[in-house]
Amino acid sequence: MNALNIKGLTKVYKGGTRALNGINLEVKQGDFFALLGPNGAGKSTTIGIISSLVNKTSGTADIFEYSLDAQPVEAKSCIGLVPQEFNFNQFETLTQIVVNQAGYYGVPRNVAKERAEKYLKQLDLWEKRNQPARNLSGGMKRRLMIARALMHEPRMLILDEPTAGVDIEIRRSMWTFLKEINEQGITIILTTHYLEEAEMLCRNIAIIDKGVIVQNTSMKSLLATLNIETFILDLAGEHQSIALSGFEYRLLDPHTLEVDVAKEESLNNVFEQLSSQKIEVLSMRNKSNRLEELFVRLVESGREELANKEKTQKELANG
């Protein structure tokens, strides 16, 4: 069964901005799904429509077996939302925020209090439970929003940049927590600008740009399409010129070499050539995250395609 089934979803805001252009998207039950795209691509609008914060212009969205139009109460009950912005009352205590949220979903107060203890403890917020939310650090506020979204025990959790502005230690602990709840059966849809986060957590991925899905596949097969990886080598001593046959390379400064290595080529070949020139390599690293490279390429090629299409249409219109 699909946890999310979107068909022909379109959103045109007042003033004519077309945020979504008839997108189709399926997310399988139990999946950990990444919805990626540059700023203004349509991610938050998609999430807004699914979670009833944005009115759609046309199209349909089904949450599990429920239609968002025909059975909104059932559909909404399945979703837990962690929005991008902090949207809780800063003057309420943590307990009030999470217990009230459970109440809005019809969870009795005594059950809500038990769940508040469970989730606030799991997210390491229990000690702060009686403090107003405004006293929390940024990372704690992010975790509070996750706890709040889980209070009605949803079948699907939507996380809109949940780790933005969070330090690496807390981010890693959040990843562990999210992996755990996904293993327990909760479907997770994640948007993030940290692409290593998506690569590490998600099994399937859709990339959206200018309101159009430009890629929708499994993370594995997407990464398999990456033909070239770029490595940065830190060299001992100073070098004004280097010769590497069979590779694209750039000497960034006298100590740093950047080399593009195709999938079928061996890194040993690079080292052998450097060694023969008596160049010692001190250390080596990837230029960027693999998914990041793919993301940039896909978005750029999607934009080129769109520009070409528009150009052709203009030419046809001008006769």
Partner: peptide
């Protein structure tokens, strides 16, 4: 938004 996302 806490109210708008809930089945109220």
């Amino acid at each position: 938004e806490e109210l708008l996302v809930a089945p109220i």
